[in-house]
Simulated scan of single mutants.
Amino acid sequence: MTRNLPGIALALAAVGLASFAHLTLPWAPTLTACVVLGVVVTSLPWPARVREILQPGLAASARRLLRIGIVLLGLKLSLVDIADLGWLVLGMIVLIVAATFALTLGMGRLLRLPGDQPLLIAAGFSVCGASAIGAMSGVTRSKDADQATPIALVTLCGTLAIAVLPALQPVLGLDAEQFGMWTGASVHDVGQVVATAQIAGPSALAIAVVVKLTRVALLAPMVAITGLVLKREGDGRRPALVPLFLVGFMVAVLVRTVIPLPDAVLQVADTAQLVLLGVALFGLGAAIRVGTLMRTGPRPLAVAAISWVAIAALSLGAVAVATAAGVPALR
């Protein structure tokens, strides 16, 4: 355990720096900044001995602490809030996630991306960014290095969304609530959703967060179905149908739904979840080698671009359908 401390300490310092950057620049989500800092730090010319000292803690952060953070993420979700969206919106969210996942996976395999990249990119773009990639890797047993390109791509597109979507709001004629639904249904990471939606005001932010967390709720069934498919394919990895940390995630959702937790408890859990995911995403970012990423060629970028445009277009269509149907949240 002690050999993990240097790497974890560095990751904690990075989370502190990322949090300060977010306070200074609200458009820069903390978790996105953690990934970027991880990339920057690993690109520095560290002596080989220093890298050896830091590596165990960074690896532990990227795996174990990520899973604990995902469990705590479940405390953000209340099934009551999700049900309040109505069956039409819920159905469209499920269809958007499923269609984006299938399209991205298919494009990744068509363009012959290596290893588990198609599956990891599909998870990240359809559900909740780098956190979903980390969760999916728990089933695929992907190495940290295999997650590098998917995480870099989902971070890039999610960061671009913070600038692109608000610029398109007046062009598309979306009011605050419509923009919030579009943002929640199409932007990848929770922090990126908050950074994008808050530009349009509190009403946009409120619906964006609920829609986004509804997508997060689909993480568990998506990973479970993937585990079942991998078992049937018999590829030798023998993944668990539902990893233990996703069971914890679902339990946390149920706890939030049926037990009136005090605000102080939720605040502590939210802070712990942010720190744990920040530490984990810094560790995952540190596994990204910019030189290697640059040599991957245009195919991963093409898959990411197609997926990004597809989920934005599908989500915009869902907003139009929900508006025409008179969904209360958009009135």
Rank of each mutant, 00 (worst) to 15 (best):
A318V: 04
R141G: 07
R63E: 09
A313S: 14
D146W: 00
G86D: 13
P260R: 07
A269H: 03
D144E: 14
I82T: 12
T257L: 11
A220W: 11
M107V: 11
V253I: 15
G248S: 13
A304R: 07
L284A: 07
L284F: 04
A264L: 12
A99V: 11
A280T: 14
C34H: 02
V80A: 13
A272D: 00
A99C: 13
R299H: 10
T214M: 13
D175E: 09
R299E: 02
I259F: 13
L153N: 01
L44N: 04
G108W: 08
S186A: 14
S307R: 04
A167I: 04
L90S: 08
A208I: 02
S307E: 01
V190D: 01
D270S: 15
I311P: 04
E52I: 10
L246I: 08
V242W: 09
A272T: 07
G285H: 06
V71D: 02
V255C: 07
V40Y: 04
A325N: 00
L213E: 04
Q147M: 15
L54P: 10
A130C: 08
T100W: 00
R63F: 07
T155A: 14
D270Q: 08
V40L: 15
G86P: 03
G69L: 12
A195Q: 03
V41P: 06
M181N: 03
L65V: 03
L12M: 13
G16M: 05
L88H: 03
V154F: 01
A33G: 09
I199M: 14
A152H: 03
A280H: 06
S61I: 01
P150V: 03
P260E: 12
P170N: 12
T2C: 02
G57W: 06
L90C: 12
C34P: 02
G326S: 06
S142W: 09
F101S: 02
L314R: 01
I82Y: 11
A220F: 06
E177R: 15
R215Q: 01
V319D: 01
T155I: 03
L103P: 00
A123L: 04
K212R: 12
L293V: 05
L277P: 02
M181F: 15
V211T: 13
G180I: 03
P243C: 07
L276Y: 05
Q178M: 10
L314M: 13
A252V: 09
V36L: 14
P29C: 08
M107E: 00
P166W: 05
R51P: 02
V15P: 03
P26C: 14
I96G: 05
F179W: 08
P221K: 10
A272V: 05
R63N: 09
S78L: 15
A264I: 15
L85T: 04
L66W: 01
V290L: 15
G234S: 10
T24M: 12
Q192F: 01
A102Y: 01
K143L: 09
A163C: 03
S61V: 08
T183P: 01
G86T: 07
A161S: 13
A122K: 10
T140D: 07
V258E: 13
S131T: 15
L153C: 05
R256I: 08
